[in-house]
């Protein structure tokens, strides 16, 4: 069995940007998709971890839960004017709770490029491959 590298990437979309997070478990995949979301705005390593925010959401279906997770992060980014560098996700049944580590937007240092408006159902997929690795993805409207 090959190992499951923890990573994130952006997917091509005609007008917007897709995010994909992958890892050995569902929680790692959701966390990495969070980092990919931050990377739409600016390189995550520009973000300091000076504050934490907690997020909770739930959905009966795995893909709907992923959609709600990313929208919950976007809500916190927008209302708190914050960016997050690191995400710690815990899943229990249909419930997700997470801690987001980041800081308020500093336009001079972060040089934020574009704001995520919302996660969409486009290219929405949460799946485990034959090797047991998890990936979670969807297009973000920007």
């Amino acid at each position: 069995m090959r190992p499951c590298p923890t990573h994130w990437e952006h997917l091509e979309h005609g007008a917007d940007i897709g995010v994909r997070g992958c890892g050995p478990g569902l929680e790692a995949a959701f966390e990495q998709a969070g980092v990919a979301l931050t990377a739409i705005v600016c390189p995550p390593d520009r973000v300091h971890e000076s504050a934490t925010v907690t997020v909770d959401c739930e959905a009966a279906e795995r893909e709907l839960l992923f959609f709600r997770w990313l929208n919950a992060v976007i809500y916190e980014m927008d209302t708190r004017r914050m960016l997050f560098r690191r995400y710690r996700v815990t899943l229990r049944d249909h419930r997700l709770s997470a801690t987001l580590h980041g800081e308020p937007v500093d336009p001079a240092r972060h040089r934020p490029a574009v704001e995520p408006k919302g996660a969409t159902f486009t290219a929405l997929r949460v799946a485990q491959d034959a090797a047991g690795c998890w990936c979670a993805q969807c297009v973000i409207d920007v």
């Binding site: 959609f67 709600r68 929208n71 976007i74 927008d78 209302t79 408006k117 919302g118």
Partner: peptide, 12 residues
């Protein structure tokens, strides 16, 4: 943000 939030909530 208001329109974006209404859109995402309605989608689900």
């Amino acid at each position: 943000g208001l329109g974006h939030q209404i859109g995402t909530e309605a989608l689900a």
